[in-house]
Amino acid sequence: MVDENISWRLKRLLNSWEVLPANEISHTDKITDKAIWQHAKLNKLIILTFDEDFVELQNLYGHPPKIIWLRMGNVNTKDIAIKLLQLQKTIAAFLEDEQYGVIEVY
């Protein structure tokens, strides 16, 4: 799940992302962080976000869901896509590892 603070255009830019096929990426809009958290947990989804609130929810409730926490500052959508594509192997390993619930992307 892509948090509402990230452009829906990211999905189009991640067409070659092997970690998650573009057709499996959904974008949230105008729902609360808690509702996103619960939906992701129930549906075994991953949250892609700039929002620290999801990390705080994970500190309270554990994981799943797993979180890809973008700590890149104010960057454009293309730069986010480039960084995610560069880190495909690292992110794939994170998603496979049951021990960790959050990965920070700088």
Score class of each variant (00 low, 15 high):
Met1Tyr: 03
Val2Thr: 02
Asp3Tyr: 04
Glu4Cys: 07
Asn5Tyr: 09
Asn5Thr: 10
Ser7Asn: 14
Ser7Lys: 03
Ser7Pro: 10
Ser7Glu: 06
Arg9Met: 07
Leu10Arg: 00
Lys11Thr: 05
Lys11Asp: 11
Arg12Glu: 03
Leu13Trp: 02
Leu13Arg: 02
Leu13Asp: 02
Leu14Phe: 12
Asn15Phe: 05
Trp17Met: 03
Glu18Met: 02
Glu18Phe: 03
Val19Trp: 01
Leu20Cys: 03
Leu20Trp: 02
Leu20Lys: 00
Pro21Asp: 09
Ala22Ser: 15
Ala22Gly: 06
Asn23His: 00
Glu24Thr: 07
Glu24Ala: 02
Ile25Tyr: 00
Ser26Cys: 07
Ser26Leu: 08
His27Asp: 00
Thr28Asn: 01
Asp29Glu: 10
Lys30Cys: 10
Ile31Tyr: 03
Ile31Leu: 04
Ile31Asn: 03
Thr32Lys: 15
Thr32Cys: 13
Asp33Gln: 13
Ala35Thr: 08
Ala35Val: 05
Ile36Pro: 05
Ile36Phe: 09
Ile36Asp: 01
Trp37Phe: 05
Trp37Ile: 02
Trp37Gly: 02
Trp37Asp: 01
Gln38Phe: 04
His39Pro: 01
His39Tyr: 14
Ala40Gly: 08
Ala40His: 07
Ala40Asp: 04
Lys41Asp: 07
Lys41Glu: 12
Asn43Thr: 14
Asn43Tyr: 12
Lys44Ser: 09
Lys44Gly: 09
Lys44Pro: 05
Lys44His: 13
Lys44Gln: 13
Leu45Pro: 05
Ile46Arg: 01
Ile47Ser: 01
Leu48Ile: 11
Thr49Trp: 12
Thr49His: 10
Asp51Asn: 13
Glu52Val: 13
Glu52Gln: 14
Glu52Leu: 14
Asp53His: 10
Asp53Ala: 12
Val55Arg: 14
Leu57Ala: 05
Leu57Ile: 12
Gln58Met: 13
Gln58Pro: 08
Gln58Gly: 12
Asn59Tyr: 07
Asn59Cys: 14
Leu60Gln: 13
Leu60Glu: 13
Tyr61Thr: 14
Gly62Ser: 15
Gly62Glu: 12
His63Glu: 08
Pro64Tyr: 06
Pro64Ile: 08
Pro65Tyr: 07
Lys66Trp: 07
Ile68Gln: 01
Ile68Pro: 00
Ile68Met: 02
Trp69Tyr: 15
Leu70Gln: 01
Arg71Val: 12
Met72Thr: 05
Gly73Arg: 06
Asn74Pro: 03
Asn74Gln: 10
Asn74Phe: 12
Val75Ser: 05
Val75Tyr: 04
Thr77Trp: 01
Lys78Ser: 02
Ala81Arg: 00
Ile82Val: 15
Ile82Met: 06
Ile82Leu: 09
Ile82Lys: 10
Leu84Tyr: 06
Leu85Phe: 00
Leu87Ala: 06
Thr90Arg: 15
Ile91Met: 04
Ala92Arg: 09
Ala93Asp: 09
Ala93Lys: 14
Ala93Met: 06
Ala93His: 11
Phe94Met: 05
Glu96Trp: 10
Glu96Arg: 07
Asp97Asn: 07
Asp97Arg: 02
Glu98Pro: 11
Glu98Ala: 14
Gly101His: 11
Gly101Lys: 09
Val102Leu: 08
Val102Trp: 07
Ile103Asn: 01
Ile103Cys: 07
Glu104Tyr: 10
Glu104Thr: 13
Glu104Gln: 12
Glu104Met: 15
Val105Asp: 04
Val105Gln: 04
Val105Asn: 03
